[in-house]
Amino acid sequence: MQPPLTKDYFSLFGLPIDFHIDDEELTARYREMQSAVHPDRYASAAAQEQRISLQMAARINEAYETLRHPMSRIRYMLELKGVDPRQADSSPDPAFLARQIEWRETLEEIRESGDPGHGLAALSEEAGACIATLLEKVAAELKDDARLSSALTHFLELQYYYRLLEEARDIEDMLEQGGPGRT
């Protein structure tokens, strides 16, 4: 058994390096590989083989978790291209931030009004649509080394949208549970 520890996560699963992956295919490959290297299979094997199977199982898990979620997948793809998103500390442009702040203000008003009818669904839908658009942009930009900086910018913008959506969902949950006034 050769430990493919040096392969990238996509190749590990026999997938092309592409943002668009078939979730079912990824999960199927993951389960196959996971059962092939399962430490139980190596219970009576030599210590060296046992160690390798453990390492491989850990790497397969890590790869699967990374590729499963769109944002960690993009982050990983940027890292493969030598771009470290954590090094990017620049703020997005003021118009983008102003829009984000407006949205957060609207969410705050919805929370205070206690009435999700105040456009919560519309806001979540709009944020979801922006996320879908940005994901498509990033997918295309990641294929073109000349557009990596745009990919990074859009990746960073996506973090704000996901945060916004998370906030909207929290408010939705809170309101479904009976609003802020009741416990």
Binding site: P85, L97, I101, Q159, Y161, R163, L164
Partner: peptide, 13 residues
């Protein structure tokens, strides 16, 4: 002044 923290999506005005 409007700024944001991309790592967590926090925004500040």
């Amino acid at each position: 002044g409007m700024v944001g923290a991309p790592s967590c999506g926090d925004v500040m005005k």
